[in-house]
Structures are given as structure tokens and as C-alpha cells.
Design a protein around this nucleic acid. Structure first.
Lengths: 209, 209
DNA sequence: AGGCTAAAGTTGACACTGTACACATCTATG
DNA sequence: CATAGATGTGTACAGTGTCAACTTTAGCCT
């Protein structure tokens, strides 16, 4: 992977550091991540990183941003994979549920990434300069609009639906991460999530479909 | 507060360090907390701490435990403060809602404390040796039982109710902390929470009361 | 009371960390 | 082809968590 340093200049340091950072964070968590270690593993002096990132937190912000992108792709994939539903309404419902599952799956597979995204180097610092809402939020919003169009979500209950859906899914993801992948059986988790999705649909629409 | 060191031995170092740790964590966050700084502020050498805590994470675990205690007291106070409801059922409902509000209030007032509680030095390491469930969970459980007794929560919907309630409240608390106390208006947040509590009650009971 | 032990604090050291400054080297552009 | 700007390097500093060896002192045993 890392060539024996044929030249003084690395050529792609920014990206190499970034990828190493993602790897290290996922392995050992943010609190154990060290700028120097990343530089070392990439085969470069500690200070080289400062030519590409103002400081440690800026590198972590890049990691967080990557996380949001990955999450978005996961959500998108899950939504598009829904098919063969008896009715359009059923499809709209299933798409929302699929997104919820994808979110939790993402959290389970990349807990440390999620921590960075929602940690002090994450959302709070990111959305300062990116004026648009994080993409995952937009996806959710569209899915909810579809739910209204299919008349499963009454229009007069549309307000605040994003908050409700996001709250449930993010809350569950947090709790699952906490409970520690250790004893939390995969099947049990999936079953809990389905119950929770039912619960959310009832709360949102006022009834079960 | 801190006497001019009349004696070589501090006399109450463990507690002094612990209190300083709580203060520092609340002010600057876990990631900026330093064992040495705490020792310095307490007027003692850096290594003195190691006579009372195996390492930094053990001190933070104590802080986390304190947080859970504080949260429990808040929940308890909120629940007991509910009074003058037309019916017993209404009282049971209002007690759950009051607990939800108390949880979010706690999160807003002590965001860093909550981060420690649910961080890597928190729950995960705590519940290893404390065999009993965290007290706040028991409180919630009891409140839900009351809801069943008053027949507002159908018995066949009782299963998994803790998870649902906890998920909503914890999820909202997380999001609120993220959104950053800055622009998040107090009134707006309270209104959002009420909407969310309605939502949760509908989802739990299957109808609005 | 007097003396000793173990608990509670101390100093010094080590291997780290993030970051600042000055210097070296290379790439590309005039 | 020179030279400027971008990119990496080395050294340095303050700060961290933690270890080991030393000192002080409180409290118990005779």
C-alpha cells in the first residue's frame, strides 16, 4: 500500500491522512485517535498534516462529513431497494421503514463514526459553513411527503414529522450502541426495531396500517 | 473553600477531586477534562489522585454515576410534584409526561454530564459491577405499570414500552443537545417536546387521551 | 506514652500528545 | 531555467496520563 517513499512529496497526503483517520477512528474511537499516529502510519512527519488541515478537529470534521455521506448512501440504497408492494401507499410506508432500518444498521456497523458525526467535531461545526441541511434529513423529508401524498399520513399531522421520526430512530441507535454490540443479539435488536417502527407509525399517523 | 493546606494530608481528597471533576466536566466537556488540572485546582500533586482512583476513567466513572443519581432525583421530584388531576388515569399519564420533561430538562442543563453518562466511561463500564438496573429505568418501569393499572395502556401493549419511552426521550435529548443551546429557543423546545410526548402516548397506547 | 506500619502525598521521569516556528525540498509556472 | 509557492522535515514547548521511589503522617499495638 504505502510505497517506500520514492519522493519527498507524498502526492496525495490529504486523502491518505483522511483515510487513515477514518480507519483509526473506526477501530479505536475518537478519544483514542491521534494526529501523530495517523501521520506515522501514512509515513510522513507529524507536522505534514498541518499543510492540509488547520488542526486535529478539522481532520475529524472531514471524517464526520464522510460519515454523513456514507449514511446518506445507505439510506438511499435502502429506499430504492424497496419493491413489489401491493399498493403505492404500502410502498411509501415500507420506504420509511427501510430507511429506519438502514439508519440503525449504519449505527451498529459504524458506531464510532456516528459518534464523530454527532460529537463536538461533527454536526455542530459542520453545518456552520454548509448552509444546506444535511442530506439524510432531506431524504427523510421527501419520504414523509410521499406518505402524505398517499394519504397514509394526514396532512394536518405532517408538521414536526421529521423530528418525530428522527428522534425515534436516532434514539434507538444511541441506545443500541450503548448496550454494546456484545450481548445484544442481532435478532433481538431487529425485532425491537420493528416494534419501534410500528410504534412510530402509529404515533405519526394516529393509527396502524 | 480550599484552606491554605494546614496539613500534609488533605483529609478528603477523594471527594474534593470528584467534585472538581464534576465542575470541570460540566464547564469544558469530557474531552477537555484533565486529571492534572483537577489535582492542581484542589491543591495537590498530580499523582495524589492515584491513591483514590485507579486511573482517569475511574474518576470519570464516578462522575457518570453521580449523573445517574442526579437524574434519578430529578425524575423522582418531577413525578411526585404531579398533583390535582381530575382522574387517577390522568395523573398516571401526567406523571409519565412529567418524567419525560424532567429528562430533557436535565439533558439541557447538564449536557456534558449526560455525555459522560452515556460515553465510554459511563454506562458501559458502570453496569458491569452494579448488577441492578440503573434506577431511572426502574422509575420509568413503575410509571408504565401505573399506566396499565389505570387501563390507559392496554396490558397487551405493555411489552417493550420502556424501550419506546426511553428511546423517544433520549433521542430528543440527544438532538436537543446537538442543536446547541445557542439558537434553540426555550419555548420552541418545550413545544416540540409536548408534540413528541403526544406522539409517544399515541404510539404507546394506540390512541390519544 | 512510644514506635512502627501502612495510607496518603510528593518529586522525578517517561512516553506520549497537539501545535508553533524555522528550515528544506520539490513542482510548476514565469 | 530560475525562482516562488506549495509541501514536508526537524526541533521545540507546554501539557497529558501514568509509573516508581521517596517522604510525611495518622493511627494502632504493645
Amino acid at each position: 500500500m504505502t510505497r517506500p517513499k520514492p519522493s519527498y512529496h507524498h502526492g496525495n497526503l490529504r486523502n491518505a491522512l483522511f483515510e487513515e483517520a477514518v480507519k483509526l477512528v473506526e477501530q479505536a474511537g475518537v478519544e483514542n485517535f491521534s494526529l501523530r499516529e495517523a501521520a506515522r502510519l501514512v509515513g510522513v512527519s507529524a507536522n505534514a498534516a498541518y499543510r492540509h488541515f488547520a488542526d486535529k478537529s478539522e481532520l475529524l470534521a472531514a471524517v464526520a462529513e464522510f460519515g454523513f455521506g456514507l449514511l446518506e448512501r445507505r439510506l438511499l440504497a435502502a429506499i430504492s431497494a424497496v419493491s413489489d408492494q401491493p399498493t403505492a401507499a404500502a410502498a411509501a410506508i415500507e420506504r420509511i421503514r427501510a430507511a429506519g432500518r438502514a439508519y440503525v444498521d449504519f449505527a451498529v456497523e459504524h458506531p464510532e463514526l456516528l459518534r464523530v458525526m454527532f460529537g463536538s467535531s461533527g454536526l455542530a461545526t459542520l453545518e456552520k459553513d454548509s448552509s444546506l441541511q444535511p442530506a439524510p434529513f432531506v431524504l427523510l423529508s421527501n419520504a414523509l411527503d410521499a406518505l402524505v401524498r398517499e394519504e397514509v399520513l394526514p396532512a394536518d399531522r405532517r408538521a414536526g414529522a421529521e423530528l418525530k421520526a428522527w428522534t425515534v430512530v436516532h434514539g434507538f441507535a444511541s441506545l443500541v450502541i450503548l448496550a454494546g454490540g456484545a450481548d445484544q443479539r442481532r435478532a433481538k435488536r431487529a425485532a425491537d426495531l420493528e416494534t419501534l417502527l410500528d410504534f412510530a407509525m402509529v404515533g405519526l399517523c394516529g393509527r396502524l396500517d
